[in-house]
Simulated scan of single mutants.
Amino acid sequence: MLSVFAGGWATSFTTIGCASVAEAYQGDFQAKMFAYISICRTLSPLLGPFLGGYILAFYEWKATFILVFVLVGVALLGM
């Protein structure tokens, strides 16, 4: 159940980010910001398994959950 909540939470950042850019910026700068968001959405599924495999090669599986916890904390501080 917690993973479903975490997945919903993670996707909300993309939705909120796109809505914020649409409201705050106009023209070429808005297009540039949407391009950055698209790059992040494209690279995340590619880098996630790579980073997870790298962590598992050197640490126990629990380290991946610690990393997620730290990244969520950083994201919440950014909000």
Rank of each mutant, 00 (worst) to 15 (best):
9 W>Y: 10
45 P>H: 08
51 L>A: 12
34 F>M: 06
49 P>R: 05
75 A>Q: 13
68 V>L: 14
23 E>Y: 12
27 G>T: 04
9 W>N: 01
44 S>W: 09
13 F>N: 02
14 T>Y: 11
26 Q>G: 09
15 T>Q: 11
47 L>R: 07
41 R>F: 06
45 P>A: 07
72 V>S: 12
29 F>K: 10
5 F>Y: 07
6 A>K: 08
28 D>A: 15
20 S>Q: 12
32 K>H: 09
20 S>I: 03
29 F>H: 13
65 F>M: 15
62 K>M: 03
37 I>S: 02
23 E>R: 13
43 L>H: 10
42 T>S: 12
27 G>L: 05
46 L>F: 15
26 Q>C: 12
32 K>L: 11
51 L>C: 11
53 G>Y: 09
61 W>H: 11
21 V>I: 15
71 L>F: 13
43 L>I: 14
58 F>N: 10
28 D>N: 09
53 G>Q: 08
18 C>D: 03
50 F>Q: 08
12 S>G: 04
22 A>M: 04
5 F>V: 05
76 L>I: 13
8 G>P: 00
34 F>G: 00
71 L>H: 08
73 G>W: 05
67 L>M: 15
9 W>C: 00
44 S>P: 01
18 C>K: 04
24 A>Q: 08
42 T>C: 09
59 Y>H: 12
60 E>F: 01
68 V>W: 11
59 Y>I: 02
41 R>H: 07
18 C>P: 00
36 Y>E: 08
52 G>K: 01
28 D>R: 12
27 G>M: 06
69 F>R: 04
53 G>K: 11
15 T>F: 14
73 G>H: 06
4 V>Y: 03
26 Q>N: 13
67 L>Q: 13
39 I>C: 07
6 A>N: 09
20 S>M: 10
74 V>M: 12
33 M>C: 11
55 I>V: 15
49 P>A: 04
47 L>M: 12
19 A>Y: 07
7 G>S: 05
13 F>P: 00
24 A>D: 03
17 G>F: 00
37 I>V: 12
60 E>A: 04
34 F>E: 00
17 G>M: 01
43 L>G: 10
40 C>V: 10
24 A>M: 05
70 V>G: 06
7 G>I: 00
34 F>W: 02
33 M>L: 14
18 C>M: 07
58 F>E: 07
41 R>P: 00
35 A>N: 11
62 K>F: 06
41 R>D: 08
42 T>L: 13
5 F>N: 01
33 M>W: 04
22 A>C: 02
58 F>V: 07
73 G>P: 02
53 G>C: 07
48 G>I: 06
25 Y>L: 06
47 L>W: 09
37 I>A: 07
76 L>M: 14
50 F>K: 10
21 V>T: 08
20 S>Y: 10
77 L>I: 11
45 P>L: 05
9 W>G: 00
4 V>Q: 02
75 A>C: 14
33 M>Q: 13
57 A>T: 14
36 Y>A: 09
64 T>D: 04
12 S>T: 03
60 E>Q: 05
56 L>R: 14
10 A>F: 01
32 K>I: 03
57 A>S: 15
16 I>W: 03
4 V>M: 03
55 I>S: 04
28 D>C: 03
30 Q>N: 11
3 S>D: 00
55 I>F: 10
76 L>D: 04
11 T>C: 02
66 I>T: 14
61 W>N: 08
16 I>Y: 07
